[in-house]
């Protein structure tokens, strides 16, 4: 049961925290949550097809399909989060404008659906294989329910916590969360790329696992929230920092363009 809790909680937490952040941020930008059902449907569909075709996907690209698809999804979501930061900063004060509004909704739907596809596929595979095939229903299902319940509860707190803030602060905090989440996703993508031998394997720069072990609860939470890595390599660290810089750069760019627009007026 405990392994079901851990697997499901870890996967759900990553997705739910990001989706709740996007929900709060989109609401602060003046959008209703109409995009959410679309994202959920796409996400479930994506997760289901990913799980069903996992074998074919794994065999693609000389057996490295899984890594390549996972890394692509992770990087795509990371890019979408950077776009989110740009939109949140730039269009904070004109919520009803139509083109940026559509862009915001598009980012929310795409990022949520892609994240759900990846996380959901693993949950589906685990629950189906062990709950249904191996007949450990009670154990797997209660574990999955506990994991999913904890993840969704934390997401609920996050959503209402963010909504309780004044909308401008809410957007700033959301952008901050998007920045670290995006960097965490880039970090995860580097594992897959390393595993597929696309990024070179390197010696770790340091080892902080004695401080916070990745397998500990704190480590798991830090990994889900910030992309914590106890033994980062030079390539991983630079990509992580580059992603944070890109997110901050997008926000700075948006500030500048807002300023010039106001100046022209």
């Amino acid at each position: 049961m405990i392994s079901a809790v851990i697997i499901v909680l870890r996967e759900v937490l990553e997705g739910v925290l990001m989706i709740c952040m996007l929900m709060a941020s989109a609401s602060a930008m003046g959008h209703r949550l109409r995009w959410l059902p679309a994202a959920l449907v796409l996400g479930f569909f994506g997760a289901f097809s990913y799980a069903v075709f996992l074998e074919q996907i794994s065999m693609a690209f000389d057996g490295l399909g899984q890594e390549i698809i996972s890394a692509s999804l992770l990087l795509a979501v990371a890019v979408l989060l950077i776009v989110h930061n740009f939109l949140a900063t730039r269009h904070a004060n004109l919520p009803e404008a139509s083109a940026p509004a559509l862009a915001v909704l598009g980012v929310c739907v795409a990022a949520s659906a892609m994240s759900m596809s990846r996380e959901g596929a693993e949950i589906y595979l685990y629950v189906y294989a062990f709950g249904v095939q191996a007949g450990e229903m009670a154990s797997v299902l209660s574990g999955a329910a506990i994991g999913a319940g904890i993840g969704l509860s934390l997401g609920t707190f996050m959503y209402y916590g963010l909504r309780a803030l004044p909308w401008r602060t809410c957007l700033w905090v959301s952008a901050g969360i998007a920045t670290v989440t995006g960097a965490g996703l880039v970090m995860q993508a580097t594992y897959y790329l390393g595993q597929a031998d696309i990024l070179p394997g390197q010696a770790a720069l340091w080892d902080s696992s004695s401080l916070v072990a990745e397998s500990s609860l704190t480590g798991e939470l830090l990994q889900a929230a910030l992309g914590y890595e106890a033994t980062p390599t030079a390539v991983q660290l630079s990509l992580y920092l580059a992603s944070i810089l890109a997110a901050l750069g997008a926000m700075a760019l948006a500030r500048v363009s807002v300023k010039t627009r106001e100046y022209r007026k």
Partner: peptide, 23 residues
């Protein structure tokens, strides 16, 4: 966690994982 590797291997199939160079 130590190797930073994670790969789902479907039943009756195989997967490739590169590791190293390691201390």
């Amino acid at each position: 966690y130590e190797l930073n590797r994670e790969k789902v291997i479907v039943g009756n199939s195989q997967g490739i994982v590169f590791i190293g160079p390691l201390e």
